[in-house]
């Protein structure tokens, strides 16, 4: 089982034209209320997509649909997985989809309590994804856990403490380590730096940029923080009322927004 953890060697290097993710005409209704409407886009390996918009604009609905948590009303989500190639994730059987999620994805929740097991130690939380993939060598897993805890700047002496004994910011760092330790191809992040103090946020943003460069990691980041969007995203989608109202190169959308709503959003940012 361990071989699935290895990165594909050079198969996805230059000129890879096959998308990592292809979302087509995705619509989600909650009863008669629209969550998100007719959304289509593609992502390439290594690309970081930012989704911005106000509360209730459909950002999180979209993220949940794409990440397999919420079946869309209509439309399809195809993901290029290591095991199955480019497949519609809702065409896979439940066990296959769950295995693909464990192997290829990470999901960093806004609230670390949603992404962590609060009753087992921080270190066990970080190592668990490796166990789920069949690793059984505890020494190796402990080592990998220690490596990741130091990369997210956690005190290694506290590896055996329970998450509830950590601060909110530290919990978030554990969650991030837990979601990157298994070398995912795509990481979903819902307001990942919302609960972190600014210095940790900076270190985290830098870490994520390094990973994107070194591992060819792709990420979808939902945020309302325009500064995070600028630093992290290659490309932005701006959502309002369930629709994508503007999309494009991140710095272009932020510096020369075309849609009235994007102009309002960008001009509302406080300057420091």
């Amino acid at each position: 089982m361990t071989e699935v953890l290895d990165r594909p060697t050079s198969s996805q290097s230059v000129g890879a034209v096959e998308p990592l993710l292809r979302v087509s005409n995705l619509t989600k209704y909650y009863g008669h209320v629209a969550g998100c409407l007719d959304i289509s886009f593609e992502m390439r390996p290594g690309e970081v997509l930012g989704i911005v918009g106000e509360s209730g604009s459909g950002k999180t609905t979209l993220l949940n649909c794409i990440s397999g948590k919420l079946a869309p009303t209509t439309g399809s989500i195809a993901f290029n997985s290591r095991r199955h190639g480019l497949v519609d994730i809702y065409d896979l059987s439940e066990p296959d989809r769950r295995r693909m999620q464990r192997e290829d994805w990470g999901f960093v929740h806004q609230n670390p309590r949603d992404g962590l097991r609060m009753r087992v130690s921080g270190g066990a939380n970080v190592a668990e994804p490796l166990m789920n993939l069949g690793r059984r060598h505890y020494g190796d897993m402990r080592q990998a856990t220690m490596d990741w805890l130091s990369r997210v700047e956690l005190d290694l002496g506290r590896v055996d403490d329970k998450p509830r004994n950590f601060s909110g910011g530290m919990q978030q760092r554990i969650q991030i380590a837990r979601n990157l330790i298994h070398n995912p191809r795509l990481v979903f992040m819902d307001e990942p730096t919302g609960g972190l103090d600014v210095s940790v946020q900076a270190r985290l943003l830098d870490l994520l940029r390094e990973l994107v460069r070194d591992l060819g990691l792709a990420a979808i980041i939902v945020t309302h923080d325009m500064a995070v969007a600028r630093l992290m995203a290659d490309r932005l989608m701006v959502m309002k009322g369930g629709h994508v109202v503007e999309t494009g190169l991140a710095d272009q959308v932020l510096d020369d927004p075309q849609h009235p709503y994007t102009q309002l959003l960008v001009s509302s940012v406080l300057q420091i």
């Binding site: 190169l249 272009q252 510096d255 020369d256």
Partner: peptide, 9 residues
Amino acid sequence: MRTIYGNYL
């Protein structure tokens, strides 16, 4: 300049 850089549309 910014348009040449792709920063402005």
